[in-house]
Computed example of a mutant assay.
Amino acid sequence: MAELEVAKSTKKIIESAKNKEISFWHKVKEMALEIAVIIFAVSLSIAFHSWSETRHEQHEVESFLKGVRIDLAKDRAEMSADIKAYKNQKKAFRYLGSLTKGQLASNDSLQHYAPYFYNFTGYGGNTGRYEGFKSSGKIGFIENDALQNSILDLYEEKIPRLSISTDFYKMQKLKFADYITDHTTDYPNGNLTKVMASDPIKTRSQIYLSAVNQIISNYEACIAQMEEIIKNIDSEYPPKK
C-alpha cells in the first residue's frame, strides 16, 4: 500500500513539474503536498513494519518464557531431590571421618551407606531451550531487564558454578573408589572394614564433607534463582488455572 502511494505521488510530482499551464508557486505547492504524502506513507510503513516485528519478537519471548517456566519447575524438583541425596552422602562421609584411631568401620554401617559412597549425583539440566534462544540472539528481546538479567545470571553464573563443584566432587569420589579397590583384599570378607577406617579414607571423607556443603549451597542458590524467575514470569504471563 505504501509503495502504491509513493508511486502515485511521485508520478504527480513529475506531472506537476512538466505542466506548463500552472504557475511556479502552484507547482511548488502541489509538489510539496505530494512529498508530504510520500514522507507520511514511508513513515507509516516503517512504523507498521516496526510494530509487526516487535509483536513477532514479543510472541517469541512469550513462548520462550512459558517454556522456561516449565523447564525450571522440572529442574527445581530435580535439584531438590539432588540436595537430599547429597545430604545422605554427607552423613555417610561424616561417619567415615568420625572413626577414631584403630577403630574399624562397622559392616552394618558400610552396607547402610554403600549407595552414597559410590553413586554419583549431578544436575542433568534442561538448558537446551535457553541455549537455543541465546544462540539465535534473541535474549535481548526480553524487555523486562530484571527478568532478563535474572535468567542470564542463572544460566551463565549459578548453574556453571554448580556444575564445576559437582564435577570436582565426582572426580574426587572416583579417586576414593579407586583407593578402596586398590587396597581391599578378599572382598567382601577381607580387610574392607580396615581400609574404610584408614587415615587416607578418613582424610578424604572430611574433605568431601566440606565439598558437599558447598555443593548443597550452590544447589540452593540455583533453586532460589529459579523461584524468582518463575515468580516474575507468572506476573507477566499468569499460568492458566
Rank of each mutant, 00 (worst) to 15 (best):
E60A: 04
K12H: 13
G124M: 08
I39Y: 04
A7F: 08
P160D: 03
L209Y: 01
V42W: 03
C222G: 05
W25V: 10
K27R: 15
D71S: 11
I13V: 03
N107E: 08
L99F: 01
M31P: 00
I46D: 12
S136M: 00
K91R: 12
A105Q: 05
Y187S: 04
L192M: 06
D234W: 12
K12N: 10
E78M: 06
S9I: 00
S16D: 05
K91D: 11
G97C: 01
K158Y: 09
E30W: 02
V42D: 11
T121W: 13
Q89M: 15
K194A: 13
A77F: 12
L44Y: 10
S45V: 05
G140D: 08
A85Y: 06
D178L: 09
E62D: 06
S23I: 01
K8Y: 06
Y95R: 06
E60T: 01
K11P: 00
N119M: 07
F141L: 14
F48K: 13
S165D: 10
F64Y: 02
G124L: 08
M196S: 07
F48L: 13
Q103F: 00
S217F: 15
Q58N: 14
M1H: 07
V212A: 03
V42M: 14
D71N: 15
A85R: 13
S23D: 03
F120E: 07
F48I: 13
F40P: 02
K240Q: 10
K91A: 14
K74I: 14
V37R: 04
T127N: 06
I14W: 02
V212Y: 03
S163A: 10
F117Y: 15
G190R: 03
L72N: 08
V6D: 07
D199P: 01
N126Q: 10
G190P: 05
Y123I: 00
K12P: 00
S9M: 02
G97W: 01
E34L: 01
S235A: 15
G122Q: 14
V42Q: 11
E3Y: 10
S63K: 12
I139P: 00
T203S: 07
E227G: 12
R161M: 12
S205Q: 11
K101M: 07
T185F: 12
G125P: 06
A85L: 06
K170N: 04
Q89Y: 02
S135P: 00
I233H: 09
K240W: 04
V28P: 01
V68R: 08
G67V: 02
T185M: 13
I38L: 09
T166C: 04
D178V: 11
E236F: 02
Y86N: 09
Q172I: 09
K66N: 15
S80Y: 15
K27I: 02
K11E: 14
F168K: 14
Y208I: 00
S80C: 08
V212M: 14
Y118W: 13
C222R: 03
F141S: 06
K90C: 05
Y123N: 02
A92Y: 00
L72M: 13
S63M: 08
Q89L: 01
I39M: 10
K8E: 14
L162T: 01
E5I: 09
K29F: 00
E3K: 13
A73R: 10
